[in-house]
Amino acid sequence: MAALIAGCEIGFWLILAAGLTARYVLRLRTVGAVLLLCAPVVDLVLLVATVVDLRRGTAANVTHGLAAAYLGFSVAFGHSLVRWADQRFAHRFANGPAPVRPPKYGAAKVRHEWREWGKAVLAWAISCGLILGMIAMVDAPERTHELWPWIIRLSTVVGVWFVGWPLWTTISPPREPANRR
Rank of each mutant, 00 (worst) to 15 (best):
F77S: 04
Y70I: 00
A85T: 07
D86N: 08
P102L: 05
A85N: 03
P103V: 12
A76M: 06
S80A: 14
A76W: 08
V110L: 13
A90N: 10
P102D: 13
N95D: 13
Y70G: 01
G96N: 12
Y105C: 03
Q87N: 12
V110A: 11
A108E: 15
A90T: 01
A76T: 08
V82K: 01
A76D: 06
P97Q: 08
S80F: 09
V110T: 15
R92Y: 03
R101A: 15
L71T: 03
N95G: 07
R101S: 13
A108K: 07
Y70H: 14
N95C: 06
A107L: 13
W84S: 06
Q87W: 02
P99V: 12
D86R: 00
K104P: 02
A94Q: 05
V110Y: 04
R92K: 14
Y70C: 04
A76V: 10
H91L: 01
H91K: 05
F77R: 09
S80Q: 11
R88S: 06
H79I: 10
P99W: 05
Y105G: 05
A85S: 15
G78F: 03
G96Q: 09
Q87V: 03
G96D: 14
Y70A: 07
L71C: 08
F89D: 00
R83G: 00
R88Y: 04
A108W: 01
F93W: 14
G78K: 02
K109V: 05
A98W: 14
W84K: 11
K109N: 06
A108H: 07
G96H: 09
G72R: 04
V100I: 14
H79D: 13
R83N: 04
G96R: 10
G78C: 03
F77Q: 10
F93E: 05
R111A: 10
R88K: 11
K104Y: 01
F73V: 08
S80Y: 09
R92L: 15
R83F: 07
N95A: 15
V100R: 15
A90R: 10
D86Q: 02
A108M: 04
S80C: 02
G96W: 15
R92C: 08
G78R: 00
K104N: 11
A90W: 01
K104E: 15
A85W: 01
F73C: 05
K104Q: 10
R111K: 12
H79V: 09
Y105N: 07
P99A: 14
A108Y: 07
G78D: 05
P97E: 12
P102W: 08
P102R: 11
G106S: 12
A98L: 14
S74W: 07
P102V: 04
Y105E: 14
Y105I: 03
L81A: 04
P97L: 09
K109W: 07
K104F: 04
F73H: 11
Y70M: 06
V75N: 01
F89L: 00
P102G: 10
A76Q: 09
R92H: 06
Y70Q: 10
V110N: 04
Y105D: 08
F77I: 05
A90L: 00
A90C: 07
F93M: 03
V75Y: 13
S80K: 06
R88M: 05
